[in-house]
Amino acid sequence: MASTGMSDSAPPDPRTALALHPLDPAGRAWVDEAEARVAARSTAVRALFPAVRRHCGRDRLVEHWTADEAARAVLLLALPLDGTPLASELAGLFRHGDPAEQRAVLRALPFLDVPEEAALGFVREALRGNDSTLIEAALGPYGAARLPDAEYRQAVLKCVFYEITLDRIAGLDTRADDELARMLADFAHERVAAGRDVPQDIWPVVRAFPALATLTEKLAAETWAATPERREAAVRALKALQ
């Protein structure tokens, strides 16, 4: 199928991102000192992690990283912990974190030596919520590669409902399957039956799977519906689908 999602290549190491796009000297000095304090005493991260944005700003450095997210990831990488103790410190940061902090934890997951079940716990908590920025961060490379099929499909459908365009989430090129295409096709039919438009970004997934034929038949039938809004929505959807 045609490429629909974000690139599946591994995101850059946050230290590399910060080296290529340096912070201003005061911000850099603050990060260096914070990193040293966290390395010396892991609990120092609890007060430093929330303060990062005020010192480093929130400019976008590269795809995947803003300045604050990369700097927060650097602090997590400085923690002298791994395995379950690391998961426990991260759980505290995530549980008490504001959305910007939670996004930073989610984006740092590919670089941390943390048990998968703990990490997927953060991903699932973000996906249960209503904040589209967190849902998007949860469907970054880590979550997209590891969520079980049924959960991944539900998460993609949730993105469609939450107006997160599918080019912003990871894994679609490799994980889209017959069942996800069927779910998106049924969603498209539901929208047309309500006389509403269908978001354009679902079509590449539907076209690549057998759901295409079934949906085409259903939409053709909808062009004979009694209400004009429904007929017109069907005509528009069929045109977009071809």
Partner: peptide, 15 residues
């Protein structure tokens, strides 16, 4: 706005 906190530049279109 929250839309700008995306991993991508630019705004999503509200549906």
């Amino acid at each position: 706005k929250p839309d700008e906190e995306s991993s991508f530049e630019g705004n999503s279109i509200r549906r």
